[in-house]
Write a protein that binds this DNA or RNA. Structure first.
Lengths: 128, 128
DNA sequence: CAATATTGTTGGTATTACCAACCTATTGGA
DNA sequence: TCCAATAGGTTGGTAATACCAACAATATTG
């Protein structure tokens, strides 16, 4: 239990450091990470991250100014705003993901392949 | 690997929610957590959390105003400032820890005892 | 003893995050 | 159908987090 918390902080530190190297906060990185899978609406993003919608407005606005994503009124519901990665945003999030994996590899590399599979299985059970 | 990151965010969400219920940011909670083990100097705290010393000044000042900790010039080095929990601070961090453990139990409870031991062993290997 | 390094604080700025108030569009009932 | 209620976002306000640069005070080193 305590190990879970300690590991959480270590991993968060890695993520935060790499995000910062690309001028991203951890939250911004997570926004891009969600959009990497699929375009989303503001409310979806906010709900997923557990943030207020007004917080999302700011995050998305700054990322948009930077050219990482675009937003536009949804054709389905004219109140709603669809947010999607730009090409530049996708490249950035892909690059960051590679770096994150590289950074975590030596970390996870302390385990042999069987242990690694087991860890993945255990954590997947948790997140289920 | 991806499971590690996903679990990190889930655990962070739990910690953040419980901290917020006690009017603490996650960072403040971590400060109290460090001081729970031993009194520390400003620089130690900042280094441990990977924050600038000026950030620590603010965090500690607000926590002090709230009566959670006290700071005082170190007798050893009159530049340095020693920070320690107050009784109230200790009670708060203990209460929060109990809540965190309670909140993570159903989470970790999806594993049987043997798996849980294994998980702890794997994570301890990581954090080593 | 003078130069340098360490420890913290202060002041400045940007970002994150909340809430309340608001506008616009959609939905549900009467 | 039409009006009230709800849902989706933005704006404005505040507090906290976090950085950097500049500074004061003390320690250390040459």
């Amino acid at each position: 239990m305590e190990a879970v918390v300690r590991t959480t902080f270590r991993v968060t530190a890695v993520l935060t450091r790499i995000a910062a190297a690309h001028d991203l906060s951890l939250t911004q990185l997570r926004v891009l990470g969600i959009l990497r899978d699929r375009p989303s609406r503001m409310t979806e993003l906010a709900a997923f991250l557990g943030l207020d919608k007004s917080t999302m407005s700011g995050l998305v606005e700054r990322a948009e100014k930077r050219g990482l994503l675009i937003r536009g009124r949804s054709p389905d519901d004219r109140r709603a705003v669809d947010v999607a990665l730009t090409h530049q945003g996708r490249e950035l999030v892909d690059a960051v993901q590679r770096e994150v994996y590289d950074a975590l590899t030596p970390f996870v590399g302390k385990l042999d392949a069987a242990q690694r599979r087991q860890l993945a299985r255990l954590l997947n059970t948790l997140s289920a």
